[in-house]
Nucleic acid binder design. Structure first.
Length: 869
RNA sequence: GGGCGGUUAGCUCAGUGGGAGAGCGCUUCCUUGACACGGAAGAGGUCGUAAGUUCAAUCCUUACACCGCCCACCA
């Protein structure tokens, strides 16, 4: 067989993936007889494309699912797609704008139709990218959050929560996104630092004498029109006399507002006096509630000044920022502006649109969060949900402890419409269907005339029930029985409260059980310089480009290898993908060597009897077993970085660098075909979760059982013979080989030239032969030396020029003297001997003894060199 | 303002209360029965700064500096 010298992923990956999918290897049915291992894939946005963030969270899911499938568990990875209301609607609105249309021109029905069409056309794109990455979810079970079945589950949950008193409609201060033209929840805000201005404005005591008054600091003069009070701290002596008085509200001077005292005021900031605008600021809203203040609005849903509640003079209709500028001008003109200073502060933006969010009073639907949060907190504290790394548990608990009611109604058309209807006189009717609503309305209010609430639900509402809605809930399916709760949830840290906490809350409420046992927080991906990847910086890396250049396996390895369990960030280096490609090439060529053995490979695969095994065989088998144990442990602990590193070390530094070379020795030829194929077969199985394609390609080419590595068994360490002594002996050989190689290099010997070495006769022939082969030496026998293999190998004497050898011995003497010096100082220290742990002292003595005898030996050799016998 | 993470070789990062490690990069040599996407041998670090605890600190404690993440109603 003629295999190319270079591994070509493009020739392998699409072929293997098509076969896996065609043969249904990723598909699984619920089977109570086996332990379940289920991961539900966080559904990517229907508008989404694969990015490095997906690679760092989804690759580990694929690794875990493949690993547990090989363990024989009832393993399934459940994929899906999220309808991503805000993102999708934004795309559609943009499209419409290009056609010169608005959403309203189309009408709700046609708009939603178009959204469906768009989703069907473009929604599959990310799935194709996932296939190229080698991800193996159970595609047959893929779900879309807008599927009829999942929509029904959403309605059921809403109605149930309503009947449980956990959903209500009310007028509250909400976050309005003027660009997205919808409310957004607190969790969807991003607080961004901006340079702004802090204006000091004088509110005069009397209209007639505008010079005397109270000075107030504000960053938002445009909201002044809706001021209803000035607040100061109750203990602030500067203003104690003023509490209870009133001032006129500039610039219109049409209303007088009271000066009140409230604890929320920080006396040290600004002037210590703050204007209170309950309808347009969260803190002020709280103050307004405490003091039963009126709450007029002056900014409307179009983010411009509205005259709905109070007279706003000529400002009416001005955009919020234009109004700000105009009011500042007017204040200045009329001497109410005391100062204007630069001020860096944070503003709340919508993380979707990036627009500055406007706090507004509005009638919306809310989920009462506290009663749902308490069990979610308890579940974490009792350990029913674990979070890795543990420190993120604090993020989870702190958010739940300070939770606010969740605004779930959105003014979008694409999404799950609220299952809420209103009677002509404003009674609300909540039901799973219109028919049910009519029946309820008839009974309760004697009317069948209902209007449906036009709003849709927050996308995260449907995401929150994903862990059970995808399993068929509310029907009592076998999937639900076997696969809930799932095993593990992998996600980025920013998702903890946006999604993880909500899934736990809703899962506990509806399923009476947490949705997953472990939450693994994966690192954020940055570029090599530690900068966030962003389009504006031009440092985005498209995973598909890397797959194209290096292959999916190499890309996966490059990501996994850079993951650290405790790390919160990962600086992705493309050079790692290149290294990983080289690694795959190494695997490929080792395979070529094995397949080209003149003696052929044994079929079926069998291992020679222990007595027939060579030292190298026994060593590599022992290392294999150790590697299996380590890999299982690392994967069980979600330590993907060290797992990848472990495979790298075993395959490259143990198997290829040493064992494969050792099999070229005459003495190793009888057993090598069997051991090489046995070990390589097992190594490919260990590698498979990490690098699914090349492991399959190689495994299929070797002697194997079964039709695919995907469903092959994970190696059982107990079936791999282990030889304790072999590890130590082989390590001694390695050190000896390295010593000779070093001398060769110092001599400037050409690799083909052999160096003569004298090896004591009590070094076993097998080891002497390996030494000759691996170090490029011609071995001659010399007198046996006393002691074990250690001493015998130490007495190996290369016949190289004397001065070179002497130089080397001198170096060795210096090193040993240094070590001995350090050891002696330590042991001469009475405090060390008295206080250090006895085993530490004993170890130190042993080390010192070893160095001393080494020194004696080297010095003797040196003396002999000067005066040859 | 609060919480958290990081600071170790030129770069990206492991690591340990008792002899500083990997990969890449760099230097030198080399196409030897798989592999130049390779092999062999090397050079390279006062483990951020300062105190403290300890027989012993890169590792534990504290403070500080710098970088970063998250949360927050200082207008």
């Amino acid at each position: 067989m003629d295999l190319p010298k270079q591994y070509d992923p493009k020739a392998v990956e699409p072929r293997l993936y098509a076969r896996w999918e065609r043969n249904g290897y990723f598909h699984e049915e619920p089977d109570p007889a086996r332990p379940p291992f289920v991961i539900f894939m966080p559904p990517p946005n229907v508008t989404g494309r694969a990015h490095l963030g997906h690679a760092s969270t989804y690759t580990p899911m694929d690794v875990l699912t493949r690993y547990h499938r090989m363990l024989g568990e009832n393993a399934d990875w459940l994929p899906g797609v999220d309808h991503a209301a805000i993102a999708t609607e934004a795309v559609l609105v943009r499209e419409l704008r290009r056609e010169g249309l608005r959403r309203e021109d189309l009408g709700r029905e046609r708009f939603v139709e178009r959204a469906w069409e768009w989703s069907r056309t473009y929604g599959g794109a990310i799935d194709e990218q996932f296939r190229r990455l080698g991800f193996g979810p159970d595609w047959q079970r893929s779900r879309f959050t807008m599927d009829e079945h999942l929509s029904a589950a959403v309605r059921r949950v809403f109605v149930q929560l309503y009947r449980d008193g956990l959903i209500y409609r009310g007028t509250r201060l909400i976050n309005w996104d003027p660009t997205g033209k919808t409310t957004v929840s607190d969790a969807e805000l991003e607080h961004v630092e901006r340079d702004g201005t802090l204006w000091r404005v004088r509110y005069p005591f009397s209209k007639e004498e505008p010079t005397a008054g109270i000075d107030v600091a504000t960053t938002r003069p445009e909201t002044m029109l809706a001021d209803v009070a000035i607040a100061v701290h109750p203990n602030d002596s500067r203003y104690a006399d003023l509490i209870g008085r009133s001032v006129w509200l500039p610039p219109l001077l049409e209303r007088a507002i009271p000066i009140i005292a409230d604890d929320a005021v920080d006396p040290d900031f600004g002037t210590g006096a703050v204007k209170v605008t309950p309808a347009h600021d969260p803190t002020d809203y709280e103050i307004g509630l405490r003091h039963r203040l009126p709450m007029p609005s002056v900014i409307g849903f179009d983010a411009s000044i509205t005259s709905a509640d109070v007279n706003v003079g000529s400002y009416t209709g001005l955009d919020r920022f234009a109004a700000r500028a105009q009011i500042v001008d007017d204040l200045r003109a009329r001497s109410f502006l005391v100062a204007a200073e630069p001020h860096r502060h944070t503003v709340a933006t919508s993380e979707r649109s990036g627009d500055i969010v406007e706090p507004l009073l509005s009638l919306q639907w809310f989920v009462k969060a506290a009663p749902l949060a308490a069990p979610a907190l308890e579940a974490y504290r009792s350990g029913r949900v674990r979070i890795v790394p543990e420190r993120y548990g604090r993020t989870y608990t702190q958010w739940l402890e300070n939770i606010h009611d969740w605004n779930v109604s959105r003014q979008l058309w694409w999404g799950h419409q609220l299952p809420v209807w209103y009677t002509p006189d404003g009674h609300e009717v909540v039901a799973e269907s219109e028919a049910e609503a009519i029946e309820l309305a008839q009974r309760a209010y004697g009317t069948r005339d209902l209007t449906r609430d036009p709003d849709t639900l927050d996308t995260w509402f449907s995401s929150g029930i994903w862990p059970f809605s995808i399993l068929g809930w509310p029907a009592e399916t076998a999937e639900l029985r076997c696969w809930y709760p799932s095993a593990v949830m992998l996600t980025g840290g920013e998702i903890i409260f946006l999604w993880v906490a909500r899934m736990v809350m809703l899962g506990l409420h509806f399923m009476r059980e947490v949705p997953f046992r472990d939450v693994v927080i994966t690192p954020l991906v940055f570029d090599e310089a530690g900068r966030k990847m962003s389009k504006s910086l031009g440092n985005m890396i498209d995973p598909m480009d890397l797959v194209e250049k290096y292959g999916a396996d190499a890309f996966r390895i490059s990501v996994l290898r850079q993951m650290r369990l405790e790390s919160q960030e990962m600086r992705y280096q493309e050079s790692r993908a290149e290294e990983a490609r080289n690694f795959n090439n190494k695997i490929w060529n080792a395979t070529r060597f094995i397949l080209a053995l003149p003696e052929g490979l044994p079929q079926p695969m069998t291992l020679p009897s222990p007595a027939a095994l060579t030292l190298a065989d026994r060593w590599i088998l022992t290392r294999l077993r150790e590697t299996v144990v380590q890999m299982s442990d690392l994967l069980n602990r979600f330590d993907f970085g060290n797992a990848s590193e472990t495979m790298w070390r075993f395959i490259w530094y143990a198997f290829c660098d040493w064992y494969l070379e050792a099999t070229k020795a005459e003495g190793n030829r009888a057993t090598r075909a069997a051991v090489l194929s046995y070990v390589w077969n097992a190594a490919m199985r260990l590698l498979h979760p990490i690098a699914p394609f090349i492991s399959e390609e190689v495994w299929l080419a070797l002697p194997h059982d079964g039709e695919t590595i995907v469903t092959a068994n994970w190696p059982d360490p107990l079936e791999i013979p282990v030889f304790e002594d072999a590890a130590g002996e082989f390590a001694l050989l390695q050190r000896s080989v390295e010593k000779v190689r070093n001398l060769r290099s110092e001599m400037g010997l050409h690799p083909r030239e052999r160096v003569d070495v004298d090896v004591p006769t009590n070094v076993p022939d097998e080891i002497a032969e390996l030494l000759g082969l691996l170090a490029g030496a011609s071995v001659a026998s010399c007198a046996a030396v006393e002691g074990g293999l250690d001493e015998a190998l130490a007495a190996v004497r290369p016949n190289v020029p004397r001065d070179l050898l002497a130089q080397r011995y001198h170096k060795e003497v210096a090193r040993l003297r240094n070590e001995i010096d350090r050891g002696e100082k330590k042991l001469d220290n009475a405090a060390f001997v008295a206080k250090a742990a006895p085993d530490v002292v004993a170890k130190e003595r042993e080390k010192l003894g070893g160095y001393r005898s080494d020194l004696v030996r080297v010095e003797a050799a040196l003396a002999e060199l000067k005066e040859p016998a």
